Amino acid sequence: MTTIEATGGLVMMFVLLTLGVQLVVWGIAAYGSRLAADHAAQAARVHGATAASGHAEANLILAGTVGRKLRDPQVTVARTTTTVTVQIVGHAQPVIPGFEPVVGVTVTVPVEPAT
């Protein structure tokens, strides 16, 4: 094995390792966003709840589970008489400089009927 082959192999291993770490960071951000959107939708769908209560729940979950793995999260909660829709969009923390994968999730659930 020559020095050039060894160097090329090490560079490829480093690139693959960096891509793997970026994938894991994106996965954590995506999972946390889905969890936050689900919780926000459940909080906003109960009888007497508002979109603001869902928004507060989403921000609480994002802060606790995702932390800095999701950059600039934008939370939108819309509540109508029949459905609640929660959308969370942000960027995963970059591991590779200049590459910020987008994370986006939308959850729609029916509003709980008054009994």
Rank of each mutant, 00 (worst) to 15 (best):
T65H: 14
H55A: 14
V46G: 01
T76R: 14
E100Y: 07
Q42V: 04
H91E: 13
A52T: 10
Q87I: 12
A56W: 01
T50E: 03
G48E: 07
V103P: 03
G98N: 09
H39R: 11
G64I: 00
G90H: 11
A44V: 01
V84P: 04
A40Q: 10
H55N: 15
R71D: 13
E57Y: 02
A43M: 06
R45A: 12
A51Y: 03
P94K: 02
T65M: 15
R71N: 14
G90Y: 14
V46C: 02
A41T: 05
K69T: 14
V95N: 08
K69Q: 13
G67H: 07
G48C: 12
A41S: 08
T50L: 03
G54P: 02
R45Q: 12
A43R: 08
Q42C: 01
V84C: 03
F99S: 09
A78V: 15
V46M: 05
N59F: 00
V86L: 07
T81P: 03
A56P: 03
A49S: 10
V89L: 11
P97Q: 05
P101T: 05
V105P: 05
A92G: 12
R45N: 07
R34A: 15
R34Y: 11
V89H: 12
S53V: 12
V66F: 09
G32T: 08
L35E: 15
T65C: 12
G54F: 04
A43T: 03
G90I: 07
T85R: 13
T80G: 09
N59W: 10
I61L: 07
V86D: 07
G64P: 00
N59R: 09
V102K: 09
N59S: 11
T50R: 02
P101H: 08
G64R: 15
A36T: 06
G54N: 00
E100H: 12
H55T: 14
R45F: 03
T50Q: 02
T106Y: 08
Q87E: 15
T82F: 02
L62P: 00
V86I: 08
G67T: 04
L70E: 10
V46W: 01
A44P: 03
G32H: 10
A78F: 10
G90K: 07
A63N: 15
D72N: 14
V84A: 04
I61K: 08
D38P: 00
R45S: 14
V77R: 05
S53A: 13
V105S: 08
V75C: 07
L70H: 09
G98R: 06
T81Y: 05
G67I: 09
V105K: 10
